[in-house]
Amino acid sequence: MQDTKYKIRNSRYEPLSLVFAALGGLVLLFIVAPLASMFVSCSVPELAETAKDNAVQSSIWLTLWTSMAATMLFAVAAIPFSYILARKDFPLKGLVTAIIDLPIVIPHSAAGIALLGIVSKNGILGEAASKMGFSFVGTPAGIMAAMAFVSIPYLINSARDGFLAVPVRLEKAALNLGASPLRVFLTVSAPLAWRSILSGSILMWARGMSEFGAVLIIAYHPMITPVLIYEHFGAFGLKHARPAAVLFIGVCLVFLAALRLLAGGKNNAQR
């Protein structure tokens, strides 16, 4: 008798938890149901045929490499930038942080149009590019620019949070031991923030890969898969667009899972 008084109630069966779980289930269903119905509506022969289609294959390949290259290229500048954001205070820092988040909130078609203004032949970047003998409009370079524009906030924000979690004391200790600031960054700060940098990169890459609006405006051709899916839908209807979409989602999931596994395998150095 005495014992039951002190027994902790099993929180799993608390009414509130049950309500919350039910709500969560609805949200989950909302995400899973459309995807699942799309997957089951495609037959295997249909998928196989789409996979053999040269246009589909090259679009998937193009999407993968442009998004990856965009992430890597911009990471070179974005990672040091996020370190500054994490460590230094400077005037208008709030404004700078807000600017970084801008690409997340503006419509991507608008982002594409804005970007087109400077990368087209008459724009600043476009002019510079044509002097160097290449063009953004309708090329992989343009695709990369569009992808990076809309996805870079994810990398910067994640890397900044990672650097913020690195104790300043460790950096000070490294300086005190005779390391130069660059060395401290390369051997202490960056390795300790590595997981956040990596997961930010994956997020940026995934976001770039799924970009449609901005890319559509700058480079309809060569066709990345999201544009291809849209074209299939417009020209041939739902039934024809589905297999390409399923195939692309499948490829993305495989890559994403592999990268997550890779990133998760390495223990978080901060622990």
Binding site: R169, L170, A173, A174, N176, V188, L192, A269, Q270, R271
Partner: peptide, 14 residues
């Protein structure tokens, strides 16, 4: 050329 040993460990955890 002045080394400081901090009160709490500053050994590099990685």
């Amino acid at each position: 050329k002045i080394a400081l040993v901090f009160q709490n460990s500053t050994l590099f955890p990685h």
